[in-house]
Design a protein around this nucleic acid. Structure first.
Lengths: 207, 207, 207, 207
DNA sequence: GATGAATGAGTGTTCATTCAT
DNA sequence: AATGAATGAACACTCATTCAT
């Protein structure tokens, strides 16, 4: 059989299934190898250890999310700096961003599940915090800019942290509970609208 | 030995520590027993199995949270039905409720960590969903009542679910990231205020 | 509660059930005590150890079987020595004996099951051999007497051993597979008749 | 280490010894591994679990016995259908069959002990019933055919069951108590002759 | 590239038994 | 007469990992 480099591929597929089913800790390399029709030795030829195998599955998606995240933060900021505030447009932009992000997440549906709910015990168990950080710095700049334009005090750091976190959790939760991308997008739309009110309230004249 | 009934107590303490440190799955009963200065057999005299030991640590707190949760939901609803809507008062009440709930959670700080972040693999790993349900039913009744009084359509079920979830996540997150109860209370205050705007927006005349 | 000496009784009953269900080896003293509503310590007050507990259940019946067995062997021999051979009568006597023995065994049905199929690991696992010995010595005397009266050579020792064993196995098997005493008696009648032909053949003129 | 594939072999040998000595239930995998100079992990590389290890020792012999059993039953029946009854010849054939069966059993002496007396707790503890069934169906056909040829009623089902069982027990008992194959064959000869009388009696004119 | 054998420490759990009280 | 706590060794079994070939 010209399994050539198929073995590695097969291992990755079966590992993904096993991790999804049992979670990182309970997943058994033996079981993965058996399903892949490969010996344990082979696994250790391709991957350094359990963690490395998990990383191989999960890392590429994480990278892409990271990219899109940073890119979006940049862009949002740029828009705000160049144009006067126009709520409706911003919401529209946000919606586009939401659409794009959700689309990407849904294209890597399984892997997102893996990262978000099955990574305990691996080095990725707190990876979300990293993303929060990325968005947070962006959101902070956004808030400062917006406050300046409206001539009000920018919101408290902690509340900003929270705004980011809530939005993030929204994505995560929708992703975890709604299998259908289209419906997910609708839900996210409603949720973001709900949160928008809070966001605007942060910039009411406060003296 | 005049350890009297201390052995069980010691086991519970050491088990709590071990579970906190390693999580439910990775925690080792042997290690717990060793730290408690007790043989494994003794552990199985007091507890049926690993899960039972975990439950013994965690269950009482869960029970109390459940009580307070249901009680608050009931009370909130009662208030709303008997008195006309007065935003400021409600917020004030909410604040008191928040204070009480947070206080209770902070008095069982470690155990909350255990339940929220270290229970994977045990029967408690999805316990939060249960609490979401409790609050959700309450919140829905609340929303319907409020909509009636304001003569508007009550918000969509899904968005309601989400409102509850966000508030819940707020508690969880603050609990997980802020060790100081006082600061936690402040943060929660800000966050709830932030969310309040969204909540009110749900009852704007919609035609 | 005036459980007085009831505890011991309860232990015996529950132990019997447990041994029957799981066999001697797999039976758990813990489980027995739990069912009896008694602590393990109590068990060890009444009985020296697991084996002693088993013996307490099984010994009395064994004793009675031993008695009846020896008595029957004696009587059979006596009859043969005092009266000329009369096949039909003998068969009739045998039938009475069979009836009596079976009746006794069926009155201790459970305990017989215990001894015959659930005693592996205890000191009773080979108790049957003992009974074979009892009957064997009797049967041998019987055969010698009968051979003398018929003026033929008595049968070989080994075949005698076997005749006893087969008859014994008949009892055991019927006891193990037929719950109804009456039917058991019928079956045994047929079987003994079947074997009778072989027995008579042993005393055909052989020169 | 040039143990090559010896480890599995060594495990099988030591396991056989341990099972023989202690019986299935009391046998300790640890102890087996220690004797085989192998770690417990190794055992589980070769065998799925304790039961699988036992099966690996015992199954091949069981298979062969099953084969020979079915084959003999078929052949006996064929002979009877094609030729008129000739007692002496039949006995002679039986003797040959006996010889062959006993020979096979004695070539797997230890394993037969294992199956017959040491398998309690394993899935083989009632394997004998299976063999009884095989022979029983054969013997029944035999009896019917023979009754037809002799123009008498065939014997009762239960008695037939018993005849088979007795003969079976004879094999088992001889195998269990006589180490020497030659002597065993002699004994079996005698026993079968003894039983033959009973068998013939079943076909006496009965009206 | 990949195998198959093997390691060795570890898992949760069960057991008959003991003994101070 | 009986309790309840505790022992300590044993159990079958699983694990990620290694390495000579």
């Amino acid at each position: 059989m010209k399994s050539e480099r198929e073995a590695k591929e097969r291992l990755l597929i079966c590992a993904r299934a096993e991790f999804l089913e049992k979670g990182y800790q309970k997943a058994s390399l033996r079981s993965i190898c058996k399903k892949a029709g490969v010996t344990t030795g082979a696994l250790y030829f391709f991957f350094q250890d359990k963690e490395d195998l998990f990383a191989a599955i999960v890392q590429p998606t994480i990278e892409r999310v990271r990219e899109i995240a940073t890119q979006h933060v940049k862009q949002e900021l740029m828009v705000l700096q160049n144009f006067p505030i126009a709520d409706e447009d911003n919401i529209h932009d946000d919606y586009n961003a939401t659409e794009q992000i959700l689309h990407m997440l849904y294209q890597n549906y399984d892997i997102c599940q893996l990262i978000l709910t099955k990574s305990q015990g691996s080095r990725y168990e707190n990876i979300i915090d990293e993303f929060v950080d990325i968005f947070e710095s962006g959101q902070k700049a956004l808030a400062i800019e917006q406050a300046k334009q409206l001539n009000v005090k920018p919101p408290d750091d902690y509340i900003l942290h929270w705004v980011v976190h809530i939005e993030m959790d929204a994505y995560v939760h929708v992703l975890l509970h709604e299998k259908d991308e289209k419906k997910a997008l609708e839900h996210m739309g409603q949720i973001l609208q709900y949160l928008q009110s809070g966001w605007e309230a942060l910039f009411k004249k406060n003296d």
